[in-house]
Simulated scan of single mutants.
Amino acid sequence: MDSASSPPSSSSSPLKRPTGQVLDGSEIMELVGNNHVFSSFVHHKFHELDTDKDGKLSLQELHPTIADIGAALGLPPPATSSGSDGIYSEVINEFTHGSREKVSKTEFKKVLSDILLGMAAGLKRDPIVILRIDGEDLLEFINSPAYEPEMIAIFSKIEQSEETPHDNIVKAFQNLTVEQGMPPPSDSWVMSDIVEPALESCALGENWSKPVSQETFLLEFKRAAEHVAQRLKEQPVIVAHSENTFDGSSIRRLLSNKFELDKSLNTALQSVPKDKTGKLPKEHLQLALDLVAPLAGLPPLGALDEMDKLVVDAFKMVAADDGKAVKEDEFKKLLTEILGAVMLQLESNPILVSSNSVVHEPLACSSTLLTPSS
């Protein structure tokens, strides 16, 4: 799957949810959970890969499966990106345990099961919706009562721009979302094959005077959007849409399970440096929170601005920057208070994060990882 992602966007209130094919990991769970079916799947896949028929898989023979796992995860092909190559290396190490030895069918089945279950868990937590954007939703939006107020809000953001009317219209399209029927213009193909040809065909802005009035903007953008919708009808765009709602529920589950909470705090504290007196500097609360974050259903600090604000406020509440060091029990108490404060804020005002990636290959061909051998 070759994809280009739009930056994750966040909102404190849920948007209209896109509808489409949902990838939630259930099919993977069903496959791995049925021992007879999964064993048969592994048997056929293993023998398909075992080209020299020696009953084991070499690194060379594993490469197709490694590439398929990467494709299923949405990574570029091996050896094309230094960032993704590190992930491919980790997958290889899962199979080979860092050695150059061949992999038996038993080990192949175990590792493949673990990887697939991990993928399924990720999809269950953050399902991916496959959308076919064909212009219908965009037409619905520009002819709906929501069009004028939403586009006026966008116009107010860009009306002071010194750029050309064409550039301002492009900026306006960049402010639309898949919920409004617009594939991410951050994708170069969407811009070059959908937006730009549409704007060219409607001779946008040729007779505009500057500054452009709000009324002119609304009329001209609607005309441009109609042309974009026509392009989308002729060339529908497939978009992988994912969203995650941070509502504090994961934190509440962690805090309500004393065993899991103590275990996660103790594990985190093993990686937190102590001072020469054996105490824990409060400035390391951020590090500890990042270590606990996955179990608490939180993103790392710095990944999401809205979440960062909540966390910073929680740090201020416990005076995390006062330069003091505390004993381990007090440090755990402070970390628990931070989690509790963030939880209460999220329960009051959940944060929705969504991202969109244009899929440039047919879905059926993006990965053969789960395709039975013929």
Rank of each mutant, 00 (worst) to 15 (best):
R253I: 05
R253H: 12
F259A: 11
Q270C: 15
G248S: 01
G248C: 01
L269I: 02
S256H: 10
L218Y: 02
A268F: 01
R223Q: 14
S264P: 08
E243V: 04
D262L: 10
A225N: 13
E234V: 07
Q270S: 15
H227C: 14
D262A: 08
L265K: 00
Q235C: 15
V228I: 07
N266G: 07
A240S: 12
H227S: 15
L232W: 00
I238A: 08
L219P: 15
L269G: 02
L255C: 03
A229F: 05
D247K: 00
L254A: 00
S249Y: 01
K258F: 10
S250R: 06
G248L: 01
R223G: 12
I251S: 01
L232T: 00
Q270E: 15
R252E: 11
R252Q: 14
K233R: 15
L218M: 03
Q235F: 14
K263H: 07
N266Y: 04
N266M: 04
K258D: 13
T267W: 02
G248W: 00
R231Y: 05
H241E: 07
F221D: 05
L261R: 01
S249P: 02
L265M: 11
L261C: 02
S264Y: 04
A240P: 12
T267D: 14
S249T: 05
R223N: 12
P236A: 06
V237C: 10
G248R: 00
K263E: 03
E220G: 11
S242I: 02
A240V: 04
R253G: 08
Q235K: 14
H241D: 03
V228N: 01
R223S: 12
L255V: 00
K222C: 12
N266L: 09
Q235I: 11
Q230T: 15
H241S: 11
F217T: 05
N257A: 07
A229S: 04
S250M: 09
K258L: 11
I238W: 06
K222I: 09
F217C: 12
L218P: 04
E243H: 09
A240I: 08
L261E: 02
N257E: 03
E220V: 10
T245Q: 07
E234L: 08
L254C: 03
K233E: 13
S271E: 11
N244C: 11
R253E: 10
G248M: 02
T267V: 08
V237A: 10
D262F: 09
V228H: 05
N266H: 09
H241M: 07
F217N: 03
P236T: 05
E260P: 12
G248D: 01
K233N: 13
L254F: 00
L265T: 00
L261P: 03
R223C: 10
L269F: 08
Q270H: 15
S242T: 05
S256Q: 11
N266Q: 09
A224R: 02
T245H: 02
L265C: 04
E260F: 08
N244P: 09
H227D: 15
A268K: 03
R253Q: 06
T267Q: 11
S271N: 14
H227M: 13
A225R: 05
N266D: 11
D262T: 09
T245W: 01
